[in-house]
């Protein structure tokens, strides 16, 4: 029997970088891989980004390290389709998460960028649908908070 739950969350951040620079960190494959995929505790098996409307992003990775609750060979997959891209302003995408090939969530997300003084206000909104074995809305929001911190570090380092 299937179980399905739904949830949404919003995260707002201010970055000390122009909307053009923040947008580029999502649009450029090397930049996106650096803050979104790479990092301690993540073993990236593949990462491909075709950043255009109708284009896809696909990555496969393992979680490593002592706090990993999964068997070491567990492989996660992320598939994204970009629904809308407005340069320097808005990105809307749909993405799924799989664990060893079994889909456990599908989400619709938007990234909105607005000039804020010399920086940028970013509003990330996610609407998620979780299946049996899914992580749930609290863990998903916490994961994106970490990613948006990593984006801040990436922008600061690249400045």
């Amino acid at each position: 029997m299937t179980t399905t739950t739904h949830g949404s969350f919003v995260i707002e951040r201010r970055y000390d970088a122009s909307p053009r620079r923040v947008f580029a960190a999502w649009a450029d494959p090397a930049a996106k891989r650096a803050w979104f995929a790479e990092g301690e505790g993540w073993d990236i098996r593949s990462f491909e980004l075709d950043f255009r409307e109708g284009g896809t992003e696909k990555s496969r990775f393992r979680v490593t390290g002592p706090s990993n609750p999964f068997p070491p060979e567990t492989t996660f997959g992320n598939e994204t389709v970009f629904n809308e891209i407005v340069d320097n302003e808005r990105i809307i995408f749909t993405y799924s998460m799989d664990r060893d090939g079994a889909r456990f969530s599908v989400s619709l997300a938007s990234v909105e960028l607005r000039p804020d003084g010399s920086g940028t206000r970013l509003i990330f909104t996610e609407h998620a649908t979780f299946f049996e074995g899914g992580d749930g809305i609290a863990m998903r929001e916490s994961g994106w908070r970490e990613l948006l911190d990593k984006l801040d570090e990436h922008l600061a380092a690249a400045a």
């Binding site: 389709v81 629904n83 599908v106």
Partner: peptide
């Protein structure tokens, strides 16, 4: 639209513009 999950007789997940 695009289909993202299908479980026969139980569930269909679709995104659409």
């Amino acid at each position: 639209g695009e289909y993202w999950d299908i479980v026969e007789n139980e569930r269909i997940v679709m995104s659409y513009e």
